[in-house]
């Protein structure tokens, strides 16, 4: 017995050392989320983000949501449980649950619509937990889905602190017209997770001409008549010109920038100017 107990302690020591090493290497890896390479080096320095100014929204206008749903073939299912949402409208206390009990703030925000979507976090929890790297962070800061690789485990849905991810409980075609609204953009299959992609399919960096905007931003700018008055503004958070514009709006319209669920530590990149 003596010998085998000693034997055990040796093996247990080895095994736990192994476990610690693997676990800590895992922890090291999670410290920064891996970036997936891009051929064009100039994009590596970018960090795309969104500003949303609820006070600029017109009541009852859903042009941004409609444009997104149409251009991305987002299905519309009758059963609320199986809804697919990329960008949608909610109320202040749902978008900012941590201020739910702040009556003074709530009162001032109550009448305003709050758009919510994927925050394309700089430290995304979804990317950390995905077992196949089907969701990944591209070097320009976009958190994207590879629908070819997703196994539908929904770990990312559980990990997202914003509820921004939807799972295809049924064939998306069931909630779409035939042919689909935008034949140039693929639909998804049942069994994969999907979400806002900051219009990664568009030429948002202007690699092939003048830069295109995400459809939601474009729809808002069209409605308002100019990009300067849009409630949604898209840009590179590392670009000094964009930051200048960001600060100017804050100063001129006396607004402060909030981000959702700062406490989750994900470094979201959608700023709410309220």
């Amino acid at each position: 017995m003596e010998v085998s107990r000693r034997e055990f302690l040796k093996l247990a020591g080895l095994a736990s050392a192994g476990a610690v090493v693997t676990a800590s290497s895992g922890a090291l890896l999670t410290g920064c989320s891996p970036l997936i390479g891009m051929e064009d080096e100039s994009l590596n320095a970018k960090n795309m983000g969104m500003l949303f100014i609820p006070s600029r929204c017109e009541e009852g206008c859903h042009d941004c949501i409609d444009a997104c749903n149409k251009m991305h073939n987002v299905p519309k299912h009758d059963n609320k449980d199986h809804e697919i949402k990329w960008i949608w409208e909610t109320e202040f206390q749902h978008a900012f649950t941590e201020y739910m009990e702040n009556e003074l703030l709530k009162e001032r925000m109550e009448h305003m619509p709050f758009l919510v979507m994927c925050n394309h976090c700089a430290n995304p929890a979804c990317v950390r937990v995905c077992p196949t790297q089907a969701t990944f962070r591209r070097k320009d800061g976009l958190v994207l889905m590879d629908y070819h690789r997703c196994i539908g485990c929904r770990f990312c849905v559980a990990a997202c602190p914003y509820g921004a991810r939807s799972f295809n409980f049924k064939d998306p075609q069931k909630g779409l017209q035939n042919p689909v609204p935008n034949p140039n953009f693929p639909k998804r299959t049942k069994g994969v997770v999907e979400k806002c992609n900051f219009c990664s399919e568009r030429d948002i960096h202007g690699q092939f001409g003048s830069p295109e905007l995400p459809y939601c931003v474009e729809a808002c700018a069209n409605k308002k008549g100019s990009l300067g008055e849009s409630a949604l503004i898209f840009g590179d958070l590392k670009d000094p010109e964009f930051i200048e514009q960001f600060e100017k709006i804050q100063k001129d319209e006396k607004l402060i920038p909030l981000r959702r669920k700062e406490i989750a530590g994900t470094q979201p990149k959608v700023y709410y100017l309220v």
Binding site: T22, G26, Q133, A134, R149
Partner: peptide
């Protein structure tokens, strides 16, 4: 529980050390 059980093998084709689910399997 998988939405795409036909792609189960992706767990091993693209092993991801920072995913606890991968470790668990």
């Amino acid at each position: 529980d998988l939405g795409r059980p036909d792609r189960l093998v992706n767990l091993f084709l693209h092993p991801t050390l920072n995913s606890i689910l991968f470790f668990d399997i």
